[in-house]
């Protein structure tokens, strides 16, 4: 079966520091992979390289079998339609209402009439437990958890085959974080999409992952089923899962 996402030999240097050093991973359709790792090890750069926001210095990115980096603008826009992305801070557009944010892809990329786009946006808002009453509010009028729900609705409205989640629970209280995790699991199952998440939050990782991979110094150093993460036999993974300052990983303070 063709992997939904294949990253091979990715390299990226930023400010003379090698952030990605031959990173390779793949995700099968319908599977949820969570990438864990400390701050500054290249998790965000991996996702940004995969979705075309950042161009890697070397390596290849294949989405649904297509060589993403070799595509022209039109080809990329077509390939990006298979992708949804939930950004860490939500990245909702301040100047638009919640329904316009959720329906952005429909309104501006697919030229769907406003009335129909609004109806579809409200329908997806209901799926992520965001009441239609919020449709006409601006992002600044919502709480952090509500903003995450709206951003999740925006990410899934196009029924993407591949969804990226960048620190989906950062900045949320534990109860709201758990609710967002439940929603992610539910939405990914409902859509049958492949999912790639990056997080520091082990509770979140355990809940949403089929598999967990750990990134360290720009490479994947361990990968296995989520149930095995507590008995990985890898000193780096053990230290990260324990959240201990003692171990081979030096804390950056």
């Amino acid at each position: 079966m063709t992997a939904m996402l294949e990253l091979a030999g990715l390299e990226k240097t930023l400010n003379r520091r090698k952030v990605l050093d031959g990173l390779t991973l793949d995700v099968a359709p319908g599977k949820s992979l969570v990438i864990i790792g400390g701050s500054g090890v290249g998790k965000s750069v991996t996702i940004k390289s995969a979705i075309g926001i950042m161009r890697p210095d070397a390596g290849s990115v294949r989405i649904d079998g297509e060589d993403f980096l070799a595509l022209d603008r039109v080809g990329r826009e077509r390939a990006v339609r298979k992708i949804g992305m939930l950004f860490q801070g939500g990245a909702l557009f301040d100047s638009l209402t919640i329904w316009e944010n959720v329906a952005f892809r429909l309104l501006y990329a697919d030229s769907v009439p406003r009335k129909e786009a609004r109806e579809r946006a409200v329908e997806v808002m209901r799926k992520v437990r965001l009441a239609p009453d919020f449709a006409n509010l601006r992002p600044v009028e919502l709480s952090g958890g509500m903003q995450k729900r709206a951003a999740l609705a925006r990410a899934i409205i196009g029924a993407p085959k591949l969804i990226f989640f960048d620190e989906p629970t950062t900045g949320l209280d534990p109860i709201t974080a758990d609710a967002i995790n439940d929603l992610i699991v539910e939405m990914v199952k409902e859509l049958g999409s492949a999912a790639v998440s990056i997080t520091h939050d082990m509770a979140s990782a355990r809940k949403i992952a089929d598999e967990i991979a750990m990134i360290y110094q720009g490479k994947i150093i361990w990968r296995g089923p989520a149930r095995d993460v507590d008995a990985s036999g890898n000193a780096y993974v053990d230290q990260f899962v324990r959240g201990s300052a003692d171990g081979p990983i030096q804390a950056v303070v």
């Binding site: 940004k48 979705i51 075309g52 926001i53 603008r73 826009e77 990006v80 339609r81 992708i83 949804g84 992305m85 950004f87 860490q88 801070g89 990245a91 909702l92 557009f93 301040d94 952005f104 892809r105 501006y108 990329a109 697919d110 925006r154």
Partner: peptide, 18 residues
């Protein structure tokens, strides 16, 4: 600038909009 630092411009790219 605010859209850039809050990743709104990146989000636009992922929504098939240049």
């Amino acid at each position: 600038g605010t859209m850039r630092v809050t990743e709104q411009i990146d989000a636009m790219t992922t929504l098939s909009t240049d």
